[in-house]
Nucleic acid binder design. Sequence first.
DNA 1: TTCAATAGTTCGCAACATATGAACTAACGA
DNA 2: TCGTTAGTTCATATGTTGCGAACTATTGAA
Lengths: 125, 125
Amino acid sequence: MRPLVHPSIEDVTVEGILHALADPVRVAIYAGLAASEKGTSCSAFLQLDDREIPKSTLSQHFRALREAGLIRSERQGVEMRNTTRCGEINQRFPGLLPAVMGAYQQQLMDRIKAAKRKGGKARGV
Amino acid sequence: MRPLVHPSIEDVTVEGILHALADPVRVAIYAGLAASEKGTSCSAFLQLDDREIPKSTLSQHFRALREAGLIRSERQGVEMRNTTRCGEINQRFPGLLPAVMGAYQQQLMDRIKAAKRKGGKARGV
DNA sequence: TTCAATAGTTCGCAACATATGAACTAACGA
DNA sequence: TCGTTAGTTCATATGTTGCGAACTATTGAA
């Protein structure tokens, strides 16, 4: 089993970051990791936003985030401790991550508002 | 020949924008359009950064940008007038586009600096 | 040790996406 | 009507993604 790959911060690319964060599932994972102080295991995201994510799919998403340089994963006993590398990235690309996450936040709020206007339950997928 | 599709600004998604801008060719096109005041034809980008882009590939890239909501394309006689929709997008997702384009700019400058440090010619691809 | 349990990874394949040459269409000007 | 220029669409080869099944690593008993 090959060891986990973490690019050094100089090898992190903007296109890589954008590609990784162009997927709602990965964004949700990233946001979850960013919110937790001391790192989170992968399996914490098996259930995400009412959606079931298969284990193998989750693993691929973590790999994508890791190889884009967005997160760091290290074994801690039987499970994984995942943390964001937002400090390093903010230093290399100041303002990029806040802008992206802020835009997603904005989009979420717009959707909630739009769902309310339609009167029914929030069915936005 | 089906008419060109332009999503209304409420239908523009963050994931769509990021996916479109996760490609260096499309970013170069977008930057070129953003720099020009009165719109630019597609064929202006057939030669890009020393690279030859095939016509059909270019057409797909323009379609991607268009359907992500990043640009507007309208026929002007025999050619196309492409313009960015950055005004609308900045209103809907304030700060997103400047942050992304700024990060690419940063990356470009870092690469130039790194190439200089290595002494040789700028071979960074 | 050996066995079972838990947490992730890797493999294989089907479905989807992308790049590009070739053929096509649309607008214009002889 | 023909030729030219500018883009689009089609066909296809190649690449990427999602997911079940099989595998690996670590820990904790028995």
